[in-house]
Computed example of a mutant assay.
Amino acid sequence: MNTTDHASLPAPQTWEVQPEAAAVRPARLLVLEVARFWNLPFSDGALRDVELCASELITNAALYTKLPFKVTVGWTGERLRVEVEDTSLVPPGGDGSIGSGNGGRGLALVGALAHSCGWCPQGAGKVVWFETAPDQALDPDRRLAVLVEVAHSRLTQPLAFSA
Results as ranks from 00 to 15, higher is better:
115 H>P: 05
25 R>N: 15
36 R>S: 01
148 V>F: 11
104 G>H: 08
156 T>H: 08
73 V>G: 02
108 A>I: 05
75 W>G: 02
158 P>F: 13
22 A>E: 15
147 L>C: 10
58 I>F: 06
51 E>A: 14
35 A>D: 01
24 V>K: 11
23 A>W: 01
22 A>N: 10
37 F>Q: 14
51 E>D: 13
147 L>P: 03
41 P>R: 09
133 A>R: 15
55 S>N: 14
74 G>R: 06
151 A>N: 15
56 E>K: 13
45 G>C: 12
90 V>E: 11
13 Q>E: 06
97 S>G: 01
126 K>F: 04
17 V>H: 09
132 T>G: 05
74 G>A: 14
157 Q>S: 08
50 V>A: 01
28 R>L: 13
148 V>M: 12
58 I>K: 08
65 T>C: 12
150 V>P: 08
162 S>Q: 14
32 L>W: 00
63 L>F: 07
49 D>S: 14
53 C>M: 13
2 N>V: 12
113 L>W: 02
72 T>L: 04
60 N>Q: 06
159 L>C: 12
41 P>E: 09
108 A>P: 04
26 P>T: 06
83 E>I: 02
123 G>V: 01
158 P>H: 13
163 A>I: 06
22 A>I: 07
83 E>A: 06
18 Q>N: 12
16 E>W: 10
102 N>H: 12
29 L>N: 07
74 G>V: 02
125 G>T: 05
48 R>A: 15
39 N>E: 10
15 W>V: 08
88 S>F: 10
83 E>L: 03
70 K>L: 08
62 A>H: 08
12 P>C: 04
141 D>S: 14
53 C>V: 10
152 H>D: 09
139 D>F: 04
19 P>R: 05
149 E>C: 13
11 A>L: 04
16 E>M: 10
7 A>C: 02
2 N>I: 09
138 L>M: 12
29 L>V: 04
101 G>V: 10
115 H>E: 15
19 P>I: 03
149 E>T: 13
144 L>P: 14
122 Q>H: 10
